[in-house]
Structures are given as C-alpha cells and as structure tokens.
C-alpha cells in the first residue's frame, strides 16, 4: 500500500516552547488513521503542518508524494478539511456555503451543480438547503462542514475532533458518514480525544503526548500490548476491595478519582472473591482503548 502522508522528524516551536518534537507518521491510502492525545499534545499543530497552514521548523513532509513546502496548493486542492471550530460563512445559507467554498477550489458550473444535491443528501440537509447558518443545530453545522470538506471530491479528508461537543445521536450520525467515506475509498485522518470514537473508526492510530508519538498500532493491538484483557471498575470500600483481590495472581490496580480499576487476565476468579461483599460494587467490562490511553498519557488532569 502506498503512503498518502509521510512525515519524518516534524518539529514545531513557538519561541522557547516546543510543541511537536520529532513526529514520524506514515499514513497508508484508504485507511482511517487516528491521532489521539490529551489537550495540548500537539495534535492540531501536527494537522496544520500537514496542510501547510503552519510552517514546520524541522523535518520532511510529503503528502500524495509531494513535498508540502513547495506544493501546498496542490496538496490542499486534493484534501478536505473539517476544522475543530465551526468556521462556516455566516453571511450565507447552507447551499451557498457549499457553492462559495467550491469556488475557492475553482469548481463551478455543471460539476458543482451535480455535486451539490449529493452533498446535501450526504449531510442530511436537503430540506434545510436555504436555511441560514445561525438556524442550524450543532450537529447540522458539523454535517455541513463535513459536506463542505467534500466539495472538491478529495482523496484525503482531515478531521480535527469532528464530534467534540455533539450529543450522542449527532455523534453516531457523523460516525456513520465517516464510515461511508472510508468505504468510498477516501483516506481519513482524524484527531480525537474520544477513545470510543477512535476504537470504532480507526484502522490504525498513534497516541501523542507532549509533542511526541508514544505508541502506534491498531486499536486491538494496542489494547493487547498495554493492558490486561478484562477490567473491574470498583467503587465503595476501596481498601477492602484491594485486600480481597491482592492475593490473586496477574492483577493490577489503578486509581482514578474515586474509582479503582482492577486489570486482570482472569476476571472470573476476582468476581468470585468480590461476591457477597455488600460494601463493594463493581462493573465488569473488557479492556478498551481508554485504558490504554490513560496508561500511556497518565491519569493527571490536563488543561
């Protein structure tokens, strides 16, 4: 498989502060690639460098086999971008937003006339075509931004936290749209701090923190590599729970706020021990990407 994006040793500094410290990424064509990380990990800055919107201080970066330093325009012509913050044009309606945006790519006439109904359909906004931007809900705006990112029929779609701030219904709808794009053969690159989103959508991902890539792999491989397969979330008398489970082999405790997490290869044995202990309530679940994320990036609060 050919790589759509090849980044080697990307570095970004703001004065003394280094926000991206030597990032290497290779993104294969037709996959959904995730960049995970807490706030301030350097995700957005990395995306901006990939689009030539933020000059890199060091490193080499090719998109579609073209160096970003000299081919920014050509690269952006073949890329769709869904930014983190809504930047729809408030002076225009839904359909005008698509039309005006297409003009920036030099797309008009018959091509555009054919494309617009399909994009409205894709965004589920056909009957809101003439609505003003300010009358749309958050979910509708997001869908319109995704549709707008597709006006140039891009090979690569870059999404910066596409579902942040949306309700579950809206989020599921967006996920469905993104899977449809992937099925249509587009390469997706998305940043998120929702582990569920990454687990559902991404074929492959990297975990970033403090401007570095900590890990890479498929969601399943990362879970296998870093955490035990099963988890008990314990609440109640923590010390008692700890004492009860401590004798069991291959178990590991982690504490986040008022919850204890017990990671194990053998949950059945642990559950047996806990049964009948009224002071302890627990939830048994398979390990997920969030467990990996917290293990890799630490459990401290980020701002």
């Amino acid at each position: 498989m050919t790589a759509i994006i090849t980044a080697r040793g990307l570095v970004k500094r703001y004065g003394e502060r280094i926000v991206v410290r030597g990032v290497d990424i290779e993104i294969p064509a037709r996959c959904c690639f995730g960049v995970l990380g807490p706030n301030g990990a350097g995700k957005t800055t990395t995306l901006r460098m990939l689009l030539g919107q933020s000059p890199m201080d060091d490193g080499a970066l090719d998109v579609f086999g073209l160096p970003i330093r000299t081919h920014g325009r050509d690269i952006r012509a073949r890329t769709g971008v869904v930014p983190q913050t809504d930047n729809l044009d408030p002076d225009f309606t839904v359909v005008e937003n698509l039309r005006i945006y297409a003009r920036y790519f030099g797309i008009g006439g018959k091509t555009l006339a054919e494309r617009i109904p399909a994009l409205l359909e894709f965004a589920g906004l056909t009957d809101r075509a003439d609505a003003g931007i300010n009358t749309l809900s958050g979910g509708m705006k997001r869908r319109l931004i995704i549709a707008r990112a597709l006006v140039n029929d891009p090979e690569l779609v870059v999404l910066d936290e596409p579902t942040t701030g949306l309700d579950p219904q809206a989020r599921h709808m967006i996920w469905g749209r993104l899977r449809a794009l992937r099925a249509a053969g587009k390469t997706l690159l998305l940043t998120t701090h929702y582990m569920e989103e990454a687990e559902r959508l991404c074929d492959e991902l990297v975990v970033m923190d403090d401007g570095r890539i900590l890990e890479r792999g498929t969601p399943a491989a990362l879970i296998r590599r870093h955490v035990e397969p099963e988890v008990l979330e314990l609440q109640g008398e923590a010390d008692k729970a700890r004492a009860t489970l401590a004798p069991l082999p291959n178990g590991r405790f982690e504490a986040v706020a008022d919850t204890y997490y017990y990671y194990t290869h053998d949950a059945r044995a642990a559950i047996k021990q806990l049964e009948g202990q009224a002071a302890i309530s627990f939830l048994h679940r398979p390990a997920n990407l969030e467990d990996v994320f917290l293990k890799l990036t630490g459990r401290d609060l980020r701002d």
């Binding site: 919107q53 930014p83 809504d86 930047n87």
Partner: peptide, 14 residues
C-alpha cells in the same frame, strides 16, 4: 471572529 480565512486557507488559496 468569523474565522472565514481559516476556512479559505484550507483550500488552495494562499
């Protein structure tokens, strides 16, 4: 405030 240029700069325009 409107971030219109952010949107435009994601297209081929410089």
């Amino acid at each position: 405030p409107q971030r219109t240029y952010d949107a435009i700069l994601a297209t081929p325009l410089e």
